[in-house]
Amino acid sequence: MTAPTQAHDGATGAITRAPRKPAPTAFTVIGLAAVLLITLWAGAGIDFTLAPLIHDLTRGEEVLRQFVPNWSFLGRDAVITASLTTLYMAIISSVIGCAVAMVVALLASKVSAPNAVVYQVAKAVMSAVRSLPDVAYGLLFVAFVGTGALGGMAALIMFNIGVAAKLTAESIDAVDPGPIEAVEAAGGNRIQRAFTAIIPQVAPNYFSYCFYVFELNLRASLVIGVVGGGGIGQTIMTELARFNYDNISAVIVLFIVVVFVLDRVSRAIRRRLT
């Protein structure tokens, strides 16, 4: 008993001897107050209230009752086809999008770009491509090539290039310059430098981004379908127009399961790569 007490006393002594924690600075206090005020002001601006959540709690009951999943809907040929279309679209878009992204990334990194002009242009193109969200590309390409899988895929590809190129370019920036120097000293040209010194180094990260992009595509395909880009999203739109909520909820549950499983698989693969 004696020993622990002594140790405790020692610890207390240390605390009283230590300097006191300084009071928060004026900057911190004013900053926090400002955030609070702005939030209140924004809330007041739109008459924000949570009251309907309580008042109208039972109003959704009627809708919810119609959402009991109609599992048999999933067995229909049209639905199976649409689901597979979504999967194929995601695969093809990922492959094409990531392949293009690698080229763009090589041009958009100071390490691998042939010169400063190409580097700047590639960077600009990359941010331009990234500035539009997936839905915007969906609307754009459906307008260009009409409804269906092609427009949807074009949209996904653009979206994928934006994501994968940026991430890959950043990985290339961080590559070990030693092997690049070695390839240069051995008389290799730019393409050889990229393929023997840079790509092997970024490969794990790059493949990880490719899987990530594939995950994003599965999710995005829903939205893409809603704007007419084909696949299961389009089926949802049709059923929504017919008020077949039971069918929609079956599709949504299926979708959640598929995305969840693929998410897990892809994450497991990615973990192995890096």
């Binding site: 030693g178 051995a186 008389g187 040209n189 023997t196 180094q201």
Partner: peptide
């Protein structure tokens, strides 16, 4: 040329590294 830090691509095979010498 050889370097202080060896400058190998460490995640690929020895052979692939040596073949870098044949790029020219």
């Amino acid at each position: 040329m050889i370097f202080q830090g060896f400058n190998l691509v460490t995640r690929t095979s020895v052979m692939n590294n040596v073949l870098t010498g044949r790029l020219h």
